[in-house]
Design a protein around this nucleic acid. Sequence first.
DNA 1: TTGTAAGCGTTATCAT
DNA 2: ATGATAACGCTTACAA
Lengths: 339, 339
Amino acid sequence: MAKSTINDIAKALNITPSTVSRALSGNTRVSAHTRKLIEEKAAELGYERNLLASSLRKGTTDTVGMIVPRINRQFFSNAISGAEAILNPAGYNLIIVQSHERKDDERRAIQTLMRNQVAGIIISHSLETLSPEAFDDIIEAGIPLVQFDRIFASVKGAFVSNDNFSGAYIATKHLIKNGYKHIGHLGGDTQSNVYSDRLAGFRSALADADMQVDEKLIFTDCITRDKGFYYMAKALESNCDALYCAGDYAALGVIEYARHNNIRIPQDFGVVGTANETFAEVVSPALTTLEQNAFDMGNRAAQAFLNIKSGQVDNGDKALAINVPMRLIIRESSIKQQD
Amino acid sequence: MAKSTINDIAKALNITPSTVSRALSGNTRVSAHTRKLIEEKAAELGYERNLLASSLRKGTTDTVGMIVPRINRQFFSNAISGAEAILNPAGYNLIIVQSHERKDDERRAIQTLMRNQVAGIIISHSLETLSPEAFDDIIEAGIPLVQFDRIFASVKGAFVSNDNFSGAYIATKHLIKNGYKHIGHLGGDTQSNVYSDRLAGFRSALADADMQVDEKLIFTDCITRDKGFYYMAKALESNCDALYCAGDYAALGVIEYARHNNIRIPQDFGVVGTANETFAEVVSPALTTLEQNAFDMGNRAAQAFLNIKSGQVDNGDKALAINVPMRLIIRESSIKQQD
DNA sequence: TTGTAAGCGTTATCAT
DNA sequence: ATGATAACGCTTACAA
């Protein structure tokens, strides 16, 4: 009933706890005989090692903390799975905490993880977090830190992000190629690297095609469905005929506005989103969008942690920046029909 | 740089660790003066309490473990948020582990949590888990256990589930009222309470309307989009004109089959899903579906844990069964037009 | 109000 | 191969 300890096992077998500990941690310097006895007794008593005690003694844990804004977003939950897929086989457990896009929650999350003596922290910071003071604590405590997706480049440690610039560039170029002439952008707060890079990629694609950027068609607080709906109306007032959206939810709002107002997508208007949310394939017309490869990013973030941990790279080494390419998934919403 | 301890603080102030401990844990029996000194020094040294040591000493942790099949399902990620919303204010941290619908992973997850001495476990078991041996360990160790959504009724501890029977009943009745005559069911493995209850509710609704259940129209291995597509074809061969689906993904498959084969939904064929996934509102025609109220379930599961913990109810008390009603969200896919 | 000392369960060092 | 012992950082009687 009550939890048993190595002392219980030792007493039951008339040996010392140290021998039990050795046997149970796979140490070779225990006779095959006693090892067997110990293992049997452990099973009989339902013994489970107390990781609090073990970690306290060893001074390290096998736990990695991962902080994400929200887990109910495909991107983050898949990134988590990607990290797990690397960490579990490597003997680490992953503990997940949500920041709910709030700075205070994030700070608390960092504190909780540090107090729990995690072996490392993998984080995509909240949108409310505009500067990385809280991250410095992590580095100062000597805890390996990996930022992913949303990055403060000034912080030491590794980071893994999408190649947002190139992704946006490709998406925009795709709209240009398809004959749209007056292309706008629905983006997010440019204080975030994610959205500033996407905006930059958008601008760059237009520039390379010798097309003017109409500043009236650039919106940088538009990552929700409602805002997408709203700004689509605004964009149309300025004769917009296509939008590259930095998020699928905004793109969804665009599609819905078009449907309600009998604007034909893709014939009259083109849309490309970003993220490939589950609904992108299902909405009608199906949404062309940029795949973020979340699983892969989680994978690489975890790998970066392992690299730091194994001493292969220094935590303060800036060579650890990884850029994951984004892939354009072409569906109906951007393929202008010739009529 | 290196982590500091209460000993560091004590030494720096020429007092004993016990006083520091008392001050930092809010104990009143410390003079205002020394408390202030201690707090300042703690801040200066960037002290963070080592929870491993603290918990080991106290014999309890403030960590609750939550095991779910996968976090990238809206239902589970929202349930997690619901649990968090109760537990964090109550001073608990939630650690989340995925079972990936695999029995072995689930077993490992339980082990990890127990080794980490969690204060309680909230779980929705994997579909691969057909019997609850692993759960008995939890109860035997005296750890409060709350099952949610997927339940083994034979296990002690609390459980929180949807009222799947009534939900399915309402959904099916809704199809009947809308004039569909030959209604089938796409469900899941009936070894799970979730799917057996939904099937039972479906049957019951037909029975109460004096309608025959056509066994050829009942499929119990159909919770994916592909399967939905596939079984829709089968159902049509038996002159089916409506399906109540135990999952939205299957319903999506149905809609897609209909679209590809020029079957008009809802005019010629009715569909109701279950879960209200994000795409349900967005797909065309919009899908009528049962809301699972995931957040609320997580909330209640967490509350059940707190109740056990506070001794209000016994962990072995079966009075802890909570049934959360499901709400039918009526959209286009089930409203037969009169023509 | 503060100090002393023991102990949570484990592991590592040093003996034997 | 096994035992004795100390220590990880913290909390809590008990003493002073």
